[in-house]
C-alpha cells in the first residue's frame, strides 16, 4: 500500500473532504443524536465500524458483481452490516440501544456510506478502501463528538453524563458537572443546527487562512 495514498485519505476524511462539514452527508443522524456525548460516541463508533466493514466487502465484491446490479448489491451489503450492528447493540448494549436505536437502522440511509461505496470502494483495492472508510468514519465521528460535547455543556451543563451506557459500571461516576443548568435551546433541534453552522463557519475560516 502506497503511503502517499493513505496520507491523502487521512487528510480527505478528517478535514478537506469531511463527510459532515464539506460533503454535508448524513446530517439527519448528526443533528438528531448529537444532544449528548454518550449518544454521539455510540452512533459515531457504530457508523465508523459499519462504514469500514462495508467498504471492505464492497471492494472485495467489485469484480464479481455486475455493473447493472452494483447499487442494489452495495445497499444490501450496507444493510447487512447495519442490521448486524443493531442486533449486537440490542444483545450487549441494551440501554444504549434504547436511546439511539432508531438511528442505528437509519445508518443505512446515511449517504456517506453509499457515497464511499460507489465513489471509492467499488473502484479501489481492499486495503485502501478500508483506510478510506475508516478515515471518513473518523471524520464523521469527530464532528459528532464535537457537537455532542458542545451541546451537552451548553444545554445540560454536564459532560460525560450517562457514560456507563457505553462503557459499563466502571464509568458510573464519570459525569462532570460544569453548571447547574443550561440553555434549553441547545438541547432542542435548533441547537443542533446552530452548533453545526458554527462548526462549518470555523472550518471555512481556518481553511481560508492556511
Amino acid at each position: 500500500m502506497n503511503s502517499l495514498v493513505t496520507d491523502g485519505l487521512w487528510r480527505e476524511g478528517l478535514w478537506h473532504n469531511n463527510p459532515s462539514l464539506v460533503q454535508m452527508l448524513g446530517l439527519c443522524p448528526l443533528l438528531a443524536v448529537s444532544g449528548s456525548l454518550v449518544t454521539s460516541l455510540g452512533l459515531g463508533i457504530t457508523t465508523l465500524l459499519v462504514l469500514t466493514a462495508s467498504n471492505v466487502v464492497i471492494s472485495l465484491l467489485r469484480n464479481v458483481t455486475a455493473r447493472e446490479t452494483r447499487l442494489p448489491s452495495q445497499i444490501l451489503v450496507i444493510a447487512v452490516f447495519v442490521t448486524a450492528a443493531d442486533i449486537i447493540l440490542q444483545a450487549w448494549f441494551f440501554e444504549l440501544h434504547q436511546r439511539i436505536g432508531l438511528f442505528i437502522a437509519l445508518i443505512v440511509t446515511n449517504c456517506t456510506l453509499l457515497g464511499r461505496a460507489e465513489v471509492y470502494a467499488s473502484r479501489n483495492p481492499v486495503l485502501v478502501s478500508a483506510v478510506d472508510g475508516f478515515m471518513m468514519g473518523m471524520g464523521f465521528l469527530w464532528v459528532l463528538l464535537a457537537m455532542g460535547a458542545v451541546r451537552e455543556i451548553l444545554g445540560h451543563g454536564t459532560l460525560f453524563h450517562n457514560m456507563h451506557l457505553l462503557l459499563g459500571p466502571m464509568a458510573e461516576n464519570s459525569t462532570i458537572e460544569i453548571a447547574d443548568s443550561g440553555f434549553l435551546l441547545m438541547v432542542l433541534p435548533p441547537g443542533a443546527f446552530l452548533t453545526l453552522g458554527c462548526l462549518i463557519a470555523l472550518k471555512n475560516l481556518i481553511t481560508r487562512d492556511v
Binding site: 465484491l61 464479481v64 458483481t65 455486475a66 447493472e68 446490479t69 442494489p72 448489491s73 444490501l76 451489503v77 444493510a79 447487512v80 442490521t83 448486524a84 442486533i87
Partner: peptide
C-alpha cells in the same frame, strides 16, 4: 444470466448471515 445469479447468491448469503 450471470448478472441475476450473482445478485441472487449475494442476497442469499446476506440472508443466511443475518
Amino acid at each position: 444470466n450471470y448478472r441475476s445469479w450473482s445478485f441472487i447468491i449475494l442476497a442469499l448469503l446476506c440472508g443466511i448471515l443475518i
